[in-house]
Write a protein that binds this DNA or RNA. Structure first.
Lengths: 198, 198
DNA sequence: CCTACCGATCGGTAGG
DNA sequence: CCTACCGATCGGTAGG
């Protein structure tokens, strides 16, 4: 049993180190020999922990996707809150999920396209579903006249989604601003804009 | 002379087709044999038009960078306009440059990291310079009290930059909204926000 | 976790 | 633009 536990945690180590490597070099340019070297073992030894290179990518992408789904579902379950508050909570949730693992988040965003079928298809369906649920929040805000109806909704939701997903590329976890503040400020910026309103 | 012209245009064909391939599969996963096959020639024949695979990536990345620089320099040269107008013009310019070649824009954004040194270093220096010039416009707006000073400027500029750079991933050139309208709306969204202000 | 190895594929060159 | 080819490297397996 302690053997099973130690195998599990070794597998976790392999996956986490792979995430760093995939983020840095990109999935296609990262070799299993690179990964093995980082772990101090031979390339062939990796295969006692994982089935294939793509299995690592799959677990990184789908584990992150599950976290994002969970976070958004929690926001949607709260009734009687305004669209802007829902949007704010969705943004804060998304950013907090990313902040828990910035490396895996970067892989999720940039490397998912190297998934083979049918995984790629499943992944893209989940992503479009996630985006559409944010779009619904924006549409709800337009209906309740909270948001202006002059805005292109696709543009609005893709702007939101772009901002969220690039965060792992530039956010420094040691900086003064913490993830929930960042989410709050991003929501404020999207809802109220840069302009001074007084 | 007509030989030189036809060589030039053949080289252009190779580069444009490579851009499509790099966008679709990523630089590292795209092989020269794939590229040759798309052009209906043998892989070895590519090398009478280009020196190396990376030369193609370099010309795609640096040609786009030059276009972006040119566009922003023109905006900066206009005096006596407000920060929000400057920001709007910068955004519209950036989007118009991208719209002229969405494929090359996607490669510029996603594949530049496969540049080798010293090209990668030069590229990143140009990019940080470009971002900082947008940041200056935002800071100018804060100084003139056009923009609120509560916003994190790094967050603001990275949100802007993320939105701009993801556009080639989702924008459909056949859609109802044209590139300059898109730029106008994006600027409006960032400056005024989603909220109805009346 | 290792040694020894596989077939496939890579970017690129020589020579025409 | 082609044929013929190079050395290097790839993901992965067999067997211990």
């Amino acid at each position: 049993m302690s053997e099973a536990i130690s195998n599990l945690s070794r597998k976790e180590q392999v996956i986490r180190k792979a995430a760093e490597l995939f983020k840095e070099k990109g999935y296609a340019a990262a070799s299993m020999r690179d990964l093995a070297h980082l772990l101090g073992i031979e390339a062939a030894s990796l295969y006692s922990h994982i089935k294939s290179k793509e299995e690592i990518l799959r677990s990184l992408c789908f584990d992150m996707a599950a976290e994002f789904q969970k976070s958004l579902a929690e926001v949607e379950s709260k009734k009687d809150i305004s669209a802007s508050e829902k949007l704010r909570n969705g943004i804060i949730g998304h950013i907090q999920v990313m902040a828990k693992d910035l490396t895996a988040s970067a892989v999720f965003m940039n490397e998912h396209r190297h998934l083979s079928q049918p995984y790629l298809r499943d992944f893209l369906l989940m992503r479009i579903n996630y985006i559409n649920r944010f779009k619904s929040i924006i549409e709800q805000g337009v209906q309740t006249k909270e948001f202006k109806d002059s805005i292109d909704k696709k543009l609005a939701v893709m702007t939101l989604f772009s901002s969220l997903n690039w965060m792992p590329m530039w956010y420094d976890p040691d900086s003064a601003i913490d993830p929930s503040q960042l989410g709050f400020q991003l929501a404020d910026m999207l809802v109220n804009g840069l302009k001074k309103n007084d």
